[in-house]
Each structure stands twice: as C-alpha cells, then as structure tokens.
Design a protein around this nucleic acid. Structure first.
Length: 480
RNA sequence: CGGGGCAUGGCGCAGCCUGGUAGCGCGCUUCAAUGGGGUUGAAGAGGUCGUGGGUUCGAGUCCCGCUGCCCCGACCA
C-alpha cells in the first residue's frame, strides 16, 4: 500500500483525518464562497436516509411538513429581545433587490421561530386550532467564520419543528417527546449513543425557557450536540401575539416549542464510527449496505463471474438490501476494497472464479478490518446471511461506541481530576456553580457543561468546583 | 474582527532569491498486459502563472495597489 494513499491516523491528527475522509469518501466538497458546502450524492443519500428515519417518526406524532420563506423581515428578528441578541452577530442581511435598495433590510433565516410566530398569530384564533404541529425541511444561514464540513458551515440543511399548544404542560411534553424521538433515532438508526439532558442557562437557545439536548462523544473524546428541543414558553407567543380563545371565551397566549437536527449529524456518524481506514456507516442509514466486487482474469471468467454477481445483486435487492455493484474495469480488486472501506460500506461481497466453482462468496464486514472480518459463505441463502450480518454490524457499532464513551467518561470530585478527564472525554460532576463560575471553568479548561442528564442519581453531593452542596450532576466536555 | 501565510493545468507542488519561449507528481483519455488487499508499460489531452498598474528590449520571477483563500486566536448547531 502506497503511503501517500493512506489516511492520516485518527490518533495522529483527528482533524486532518476528518477533513480528508469527508472529501475522499465523496461525501462533500467546498463551495466557492468561503464557508459553504457542496453535499455530493453519496453524502446526500446518507442525509436522505436520516431524513426518512426522522420524518416517519415526526409524522407518527402528528406532525405535518410545510415550507416557509427563507427571507424574513429584519423587524421580526427584533421582536424577541434575547433571540435577536443571540443571532444578530451571525445574520446574513439582504439590502438590495432588483437593483434597488430595500426600504427594510431582509434577513436570510438563521432559524424560523420569528416568521413562524408571525404566521401562527394569524392562524390561531381558538383552542380548537391547537395544537399546531409543523416541521420544515430547509436550509438556514448563520455567518460562521470558522468552518468545517458538516459540522460548521455558513449554510446548513436541517429540519426545524415548530409547535403551538394550549397549555404549558402540553408544550413541555412535546419538548420532551421530540427529544426522545431524536434519542431513539440516534441510538437505533445511527448507532450513536447519546446522553439526553438539559442545557445550562448559558448554553440555552436564544429565546427559550428550556433547551433539551442529545449529546454524543466523538472518536477524539470531544462532545457533539447532535439535536436540540426547546421549550419556548410564551416568549414568542407574547412577542408575536399568538393568542387564542379558550373554552371559557378568555384570551390566552399559546405555548410554543421548536426542535431541530441538522446535517451536523452526518459529522456525528463519521466521527463516532470511523476508523483509520475511513468511514464506517451504520447499516440502517448507509447509502449502500453491501458492495459487490467481481474478480476475474480472462474474458471467459469475466462472463461467468459477472453473471453470478448480477444474480446475487438481484437476490439481495429483492430482499430489500441496498447493493452496489462495482464493475469498474480499470481498477484492481485491491483498490476497490480500500476504496469502499474508505467510504464506509458496512459489508462487501467478493466473487471470483474460485467461488463460482465452490458456490461460495467472500463476505467481509467493515467493522472488523483485514482478513479477520472476512469469511467464505455459501451462495445459497446469501440474502439471509447478509441480512443477519447487517443486523450484527449495526448492533456491534452501538456497543463499541457506547463502550468507548463510558470508558472515557469519568466521575470526578476535584478540579485536578476534572482537568485530566476533559482532556480525553467527559467529566461527570456534582455542580452548583453560577454562570460566572461556569464561564471561568470554560476559560481555564475549554470544557463546558454539555448537559444536566435527565437521569439524575438519588441524593446530593459536593460541587467539584465551588465546594458547595450540590443537588445535580452535570456532564462537562470540550465541544465541537 | 486581530496576527501569520499562500495564490502557477482538475488536485498537490517546483520554478521567483540571481528576469530570457512553463515543469514535476497525482488524476484524466486511448491501447496493451495485469486482476483474491491501493498493478504496470506506452502514447496523448490539458496552463492568457488571481487581478490592475509600474520597471525592463523582455516579467510566473522585481516594485506598488486590489481581491480571494487557508491557518492561528474571540462567537456558534
């Protein structure tokens, strides 16, 4: 294997590993404007599979999809004080249109709470109009200066759900329900173990009363906020006048929520499962679950091998497996093996003249590198064999990632241990600090409160930082 | 926004100091062999050297302006 073709190892330079793997696996490319991203078909298919898994879960809870404008009047942003304060620095503002200077500048949506608030105010008159449950699949723009493909780009794709409810309790339930949807998706579709928790006041969404989050640990021990669900209380209802008449004919403000998950999650999958050979995609979301590499020398062999390979492709496709046949004629099998491993295809079938004779194929699993992951199996019942293997790979990925996270999460009781823990992973601590103290910790260690886990232990303890009695546990980590 | 660097075929770079007809690797095209872990050989295609000005008989190379991008620091999903 030529050195120049090898990836930088993750331990050597995780950042460089990530960048080259994204480019070389054909997931994405850089756009011509600084900070923009072009998602290539392979990356976009992965995103489509994510979309599909989420979309059906949303719809199962009564949510409908809709489309809203990307342009929002500047004045809308200014109606919710904290919201505008949070987003002002990263807005893209349109000042000219059709060759004319605009009377009021228009912003490109950084998120749609304001235009949703404006619209919901018109749509909602009565308690009979509630709950109102919409979701948008769109892209938003936030003027980021430091960019990284999928993780932080000037424009990114996501979904944003927006709901309005008659009561505080209902809104709180919805906020939690969508968090659970995200967690279920992350764990069971992406095999990304996540911690459900609540954000600290400092990390909360601009304009929310409560932000719930799923936090994942990447392969370098850093945290990635992978999805968020916000309880907006009556903040936006009051700013935009979303009122309804209740059954007693009394005017009430509605309670709203919003929740989002972005193409950032693609980055989460890459950094959770990848190894030094490239991506490892979870079978349930992988664009191709199996790649077939035919092997032959002479023309006579070629015909026989390709015929068998095509038959197998058809059998697997009929069984509902996503299959790619790599019949490129100008590349050697060895090259193809490495290529598809880099791209993270969960399983590979090699079929050559020897297999034709023996009615077998070589079946390799991506999560076990090298020859250890390769076995020779019968062509009979191959679809079932592959199905079972994919299920097994999916489960192994989750187990492995969960183990990694737990091994790199440490319960610590003093600042020195804390500093060591957040070098390589998460620190789980009793916390009773103020906002100022939280900022101080961030300054001194670069670690932030990722969340207060929803699952809290019984009892209380001593804050590792202030020494005061504390009644809640926080997870700290360095974050993307 | 503050500090540093870079700009030359699709990509990565050399050439600049010391001015004289633009080169290397990868990739791409064609052909042949090869093919069970990153395969060879041969023949090709492809560049107004980021941009505007200046110096000079002559500028990729020297000088000045502009623009863009990358890296490092403060904000973010």
């Amino acid at each position: 294997m030529a050195d120049k073709d090898k990836l930088v190892s993750r331990s050597e330079d995780f950042n460089e590993w990530y960048n080259s793997v994204v480019l070389r696996a054909d997931m994405a490319d850089y756009g011509p404007v600084r900070g923009t991203m072009i998602v290539k078909p392979y990356g976009w298919t992965l995103w489509e599979n994510i979309q599909q898994a989420l979309d059906q879960r949303f719809k199962a809870t009564g949510v409908q999809n809709a489309g809203f404008p990307m342009f929002i009047p500047m004045s809308f942003l200014q109606k919710e004080a904290k919201h505008v304060e949070g987003f002002a620095p990263e807005l893209a503002v349109v000042t000219h249109g059709g060759g004319q200077e605009l009377g009021e500048p228009i912003v490109v949506r950084p998120t749609s709470e304001t235009i949703i608030g404006h619209t919901y105010a018109n749509w909602i008159q009565s308690y009979r109009d509630l709950p109102l449950l919409l979701n948008l699949w769109n892209s938003v723009v936030r003027w980021e200066l430091r960019t990284k493909l999928f993780l932080r780009t000037l424009e990114f794709y996501w979904q944003e759900g927006h709901t309005a409810h008659a009561t505080a309790v209902e809104a709180a339930e919805r906020t939690r329900m969508m968090l659970d949807v995200y967690a279920d998706f992350a764990i069971n579709e992406a095999a990304v173990p996540v911690i459900r928790g609540e954000k600290s006041e400092l990390e909360r969404f601009a304009g929310a009363n409560q932000t719930l989050t799923i936090e994942a640990m990447m392969g370098d021990g850093k945290a990635l906020q992978s999805g968020t669900s916000h309880n907006l209380g009556q903040n936006f209802a009051k700013a935009f006048d979303i009122q309804y008449l209740d059954p007693n004919n009394e005017l009430q403000y509605a309670w709203t929520t919003s929740w989002g998950l972005s193409t950032r999650f693609v980055g989460a999958i890459i950094m959770t499962h990848g190894d030094d050979n490239g991506l490892i995609l979870p079978p349930r979301l992988a664009p191709y679950q199996v790649v077939i590499v035919p092997i032959y020398r002479k023309d006579a062999e070629k015909t026989a091998v390709l015929t068998a390979a095509q038959r197998i492709q058809q059998e697997l496709t009929d069984a509902g497996i996503r299959v790619k046949m790599d019949d490129r004629d100008n590349l050697t099998p060895g090259y193809k093996f490495n290529d598809w491993e880099l791209r993270g295809v969960p399983a590979r079938i090699e079929i050559g003249p020897r297999d034709i004779e023996k009615n077998s194929v070589a079946l390799a699993r991506r999560d076990v590198p090298g020859r250890d992951g390769k076995q020779f199996v019968s062509q009979d019942g191959l679809a079932a064999t592959v199905q079972a293997l994919l299920v097994d790979i999916q489960a192994s990925l989750l187990t492995r990632a969960t183990q990694f996270r737990d091994e790199n999460t440490h319960d610590v009781t003093n600042y020195d241990e804390f500093k060591t823990a957040v070098q390589t992973g998460f620190a789980r601590v009793w916390w009773d600090g103020s906002n100022q103290e939280e900022l101080k910790v961030k300054e001194e260690t670069k670690a932030t409160i990722r969340c207060f886990p929803l699952e809290q232990p019984e009892g209380s303890g001593t804050c590792f930082y202030t020494g005061r009695p504390a009644n809640k546990i926080a997870i700290f980590g360095r974050a993307y």
